[in-house]
Design a protein around this nucleic acid. Sequence first.
DNA 1: TCAGTGATTAGG
DNA 2: CTAATCACTGAG
Length: 171
Amino acid sequence: MISGKRLSKEFYTRDVLDVAPELPGKYMVIRLPDGIFGRFQVIEVEAYRGAEDKACHACKGRTPRTEIMFHKGGRLYVYLVYGMYWMLNVVTGEENIPQAVLIRGVENYSGPGRITKSFGIDRSFYGEDLDISERIWFEDTGARPVFKTGPRIGIDYSGEFWKTRPWRYYI
DNA sequence: TCAGTGATTAGG
DNA sequence: CTAATCACTGAG
């Protein structure tokens, strides 16, 4: 069994473009619906960076939904899209700098909507503190895998510049 | 390629 | 109140 050390506030309280590339290879630990804990290596993520990023929900300003992104890093931003799929995001950066990393894929599970459906992640995880949560956190095992980058998925509406930023990171 | 599905948001 | 939008998925 691979063991690791829980990532602390300091890890998340950095610019999203520093945090996101370091997440692939980390482990997501979560208490599954049956009560058993699962550990899954993070495979694919995307960075959403602040008010100027037209693909980031926070570019529309501070609303009840995006509120948590304005907090210090280390919290979860969870929202429903297309009326069916919960998206799991990790808030990063300093207070009032709205950023988040979308978890697109973990070991054996591809697709952000499939992950949350499989693991029972829903609205109740909104704002969860990764430092102290007893049902979800991330761990570092020391692995530093080689990763690739590419444009983010599903944000064609954001315009030529933002939709071509290579802010998707995957193993 | 395309419909399903409902919270969120801006606007009247 | 109305209506548009949507960081997706599975079927065909």
